[in-house]
Structure formats: structure tokens, C-alpha cells
């Protein structure tokens, strides 16, 4: 898998809180890094925004990034990049609800193209 982009989802375990994120990667198993971009609306009433935050936290840890973020470069408006990871982890938020934002396809494609 070259990259994953969950939109308004949650998980990997739907009930997983950030504190539990470590358990998904069994001890002694080297994680297989996967560039990740998460897209989530702050007004999402179906998959709550906090689920998106949990996802971001999970993949940040998975890919070895720190909690420090920087604003993503253009064209990724509304996105931040977690720093220090082995591969990119980007978290894009928008003010909408439970939708695929109109710009999602463009972001996904740009993200795909940006990877080596």
C-alpha cells in the first residue's frame, strides 16, 4: 500500500482512543510504514470529529512521527503535517459534516503524486 486516505472514517478499531493506539502494533513487529492523509469535518455528526483525531493519532504513532505539526504546503488548505515521521502523516480538517469534500479527489491525487 503506497498511501491510505480515510475520509470521515474512524478506527482502525472504531472504539480506539489515542491511549490505546499502541496496541495495534504488536511488540516486536516492525511496523510497515504507510503514508497517510486523514480528511475529517469538525461538524461530522456521524463519525465524530474526535474519531478523526484518534485516527490521526494512531497513524502518527504508527509512522513514528511526533506531536509537533506544521501547516501543510499548498494546495493542502486546512491541513497539518506531523513532523519527524518516517513517512508523511497529514491531517486535513474542514468545517463541514459527514461528507466527502469537493476537493478530496484533488488532495488525494496530489498526495499520491508527491510520494516517491
Amino acid at each position: 500500500m503506497r498511501a491510505i486516505v480515510p475520509v470521515a472514517g474512524s478506527g482502525p478499531n472504531p472504539n480506539m482512543a489515542p491511549a490505546q493506539a499502541d496496541i495495534a502494533c504488536p511488540a516486536g513487529t516492525p511496523p510497515s510504514d504507510v503514508p497517510t492523509m486523514i480528511i475529517h469535518g469538525t461538524a461530522d455528526a456521524n463519525a465524530l470529529y474526535k474519531y478523526g483525531q484518534w485516527e490521526a493519532e494512531f497513524w502518527r504513532k504508527w509512522n513514528g512521527a511526533t506531536t509537533t505539526t506544521t501547516t501543510s504546503p499548498a494546495p493542502y488548505s486546512g491541513c497539518v503535517d506531523y513532523q519527524g515521521g518516517r513517512v508523511p502523516v497529514r491531517f486535513c480538517t474542514h468545517s463541514g459534516g459527514h461528507v466527502v469534500p469537493s476537493w478530496a479527489g484533488q488532495y488525494i491525487w496530489s498526495f499520491t503524486q508527491s510520494l516517491p
Binding site: 475520509v7 472514517g9 478506527g11 485516527e55
Partner: peptide, 19 residues
């Protein structure tokens, strides 16, 4: 074969995370 990208919305997004 090394450029497979998965995306998904809502339940599909959960599935992405599971994959």
C-alpha cells in the same frame, strides 16, 4: 505494484484503516 492507494468515505474510511 508499489503504488496502490486506498481511500474511503465513512464506513469505507474505517475499512481503509483496517486494511
Amino acid at each position: 505494484t508499489k503504488r496502490v492507494v486506498v481511500t474511503g468515505f465513512s464506513l469505507g474510511g474505517i475499512f481503509v484503516n483496517g486494511l
